[in-house]
Design a protein around this nucleic acid. Structure first.
Length: 272
DNA sequence: AAAAAATTCAACCGCTTATTT
DNA sequence: AAAATAAGCGGTTGAATTTTT
């Protein structure tokens, strides 16, 4: 299962695509002998068919011996969160505070775990899953109930959206009410999981206190439609304003006390 | 069980900045 | 002094893998 054609083949004299173990070896050997830098001479001296750019990238992001392998730890994640709040998308700057991690790695981590859209997608899906489940339960239940006491309600179920707890339907009975409550509990728990995940994916492995967040960004935020806002500032100042964390309402200090929890919960509920 | 959808991440691209000639 | 070359940066891509349906 080697690289296909097209990807991992030559183009204009240079090989592209995934590196093979042999190529890695050549590059490592080159660096051992000549040190880092002068990447363009790698090809000349070793016969490796890779551009200097490609060699540098491979070394910096993958072969460097001081790289830390393995998953980002909760501590590292906190740093990323914090520094991103501070600097925006200055990945290499952030990476300097995380020994053994590359800008690329951090960028990827950020994008896959925190970039707006993804986390809410998770929540969306959790919600969809839940609603489906609930619908099934409800219909099953209603079916059964309908056999018992047929006529009473029929006129008044708007269905889908709550407002259940009203006195208008005494017949729906304690059972349904209970069920609903259970559902809500389930939903909330699920939400909490997702929300926690959104803000601190490693929370699960964070034993109790160790996971301090720099602050909780307001989950609502803004900036929706723009698919990739090119803030092409000419002046060389490339602040990622759009992606800057909203620090308003930062609770800060403390970490996860009950207050921030219920705050989160509020946010979760406000979501719907 | 298999197909489709989603996720991940290594590597690419174009552009900017730094260094060399 | 300026042109050329190298290094560095951040955004984006897409094959491989994982998850969901």
């Amino acid at each position: 299962m080697e690289a296909q054609f097209g990807w991992g083949r030559e183009e204009g004299g240079w090989r592209k695509g995934p590196w093979t173990a042999q190529e890695d070896k050549l590059l490592v050997e080159y660096v051992r002998q000549h040190g880092e830098g002068r990447w363009n001479s790698v090809a000349k001296l070793t016969g490796l068919k890779r551009s200097g750019k490609s060699c540098r990238l491979r070394w910096v992001n993958y072969l460097r011996p001081d790289l830390k392998r393995g998953k980002i730890t909760p501590q590292e994640e906190s740093v990323i969160l914090e520094l991103h709040a501070l600097w925006g998308n200055r990945w290499s700057t952030i990476a300097r505070s995380l020994p053994g991690r590359t800008d690329n790695e951090i960028k990827n981590y950020w994008r896959t775990h925190f970039k707006k859209g993804k986390p809410s997608k998770n929540i969306e899906r959790a919600r969809a899953r839940f609603l489906k489940q609930r619908r099934e339960m409800q219909s099953r239940q209603l079916l059964q109930q309908g056999q018992d006491q047929q006529q009473q309600r029929q006129a008044n179920h708007d269905d889908d959206d709550e407002a259940v707890g009203d006195a208008s339907t005494p017949a729906i009975s304690v059972l349904a009410q209970q069920q609903h409550e259970e559902d809500m509990q389930l939903l909330q728990q699920q939400d909490m999981d997702d929300l926690l995940f959104q803000f601190c994916p490693m929370a699960a492995s964070c034993t109790s206190s160790s996971c301090l967040l720099p602050g909780v960004a307001s989950a609502s935020a803004s900036e929706e439609g723009s698919t990739g806002d090119h803030h092409q500032l000419d002046g060389g100042d490339t602040w990622g304003w759009g992606s800057l964390w909203n620090l308003d309402g930062v609770v800060d200090d403390g970490g996860w006390d009950d207050t921030s929890f219920s705050l989160l919960q509020d946010q979760a509920l406000a979501f719907y």
